[in-house]
């Protein structure tokens, strides 16, 4: 029988373990220290453009279905009458999906428009966050002083209602 191994192994294990624990804590705590990234993900409207392209019975799926239909027709599995009937049904589906996509994209465009206006206005003044009448209030999320008429913080993108904002600083 051999004796137990020496102490340094245990010390090394504790050291590496402590590093691992520290790394874990840092990674887990990081999102709490970076509110901008978190809020930009939660308050920004979903990217409808991307979503529509990815969603279930969307254009991609219908395209695949039409492709399969054409293949099976060419292989002689679907007679002409049935092929035309099913192709018509898929075209109607595709038209509906396109209309839905267009609607979603127009909503997205409204949101982009709003952002652009806000950023354009902010860029007109020397300090991006102070407006001409000089009245500002801190953003409840990131704390940056913003003109009181802003409905959305140009710094962190959080929605700013009148409730919850503090008294103007000046």
């Amino acid at each position: 029988m051999a004796p137990h191994p020496a102490l340094p192994d245990a010390v090394m294990a504790i050291f590496i373990g402590a590093l691992l624990a520290l790394l874990s804590i840092c990674v887990v705590v990081y999102p709490f220290l970076k509110p901008r990234a978190v809020f930009s993900q939660t308050t920004r409207p979903p990217d409808h453009n991307q979503e529509t392209l990815e969603e279930g019975p969307g254009l991609e799926t219908i395209y695949e279905a039409i492709q399969t239909l054409q293949l099976e027709h060419q292989l002689g599995k679907i007679p002409l009458g049935l092929y035309r009937e099913q192709l018509g049904a898929y075209r109607i589906q595709a038209a509906l999906a396109l209309r839905q996509q267009a609607e979603l994209l127009s909503q997205d465009a409204d949101w982009v428009l709003e952002q652009e206006v806000m950023l354009a206005r902010a860029s007109l003044v020397p300090s991006a966050l102070v407006i001409s009448n000089g009245k500002t209030a801190p953003c409840p999320n990131c704390g940056v002083a913003i003109g009181v008429e802003f409905s959305q913080c140009p710094e962190c993108s959080v929605e700013l209602g009148s409730a919850g904002r503090e008294t103007p600083l000046n």
Binding site: L20, L23, S24, V27, V28, V29, Y30, P31, F32, P35, A37, V38, F39, Q41, T42
Partner: peptide, 17 residues
Amino acid sequence: PALVESSRKAVYVLMLV
């Protein structure tokens, strides 16, 4: 959302551990 994000990141670091 920060808590959701933090939990998701925990999945990645769990793999390393």
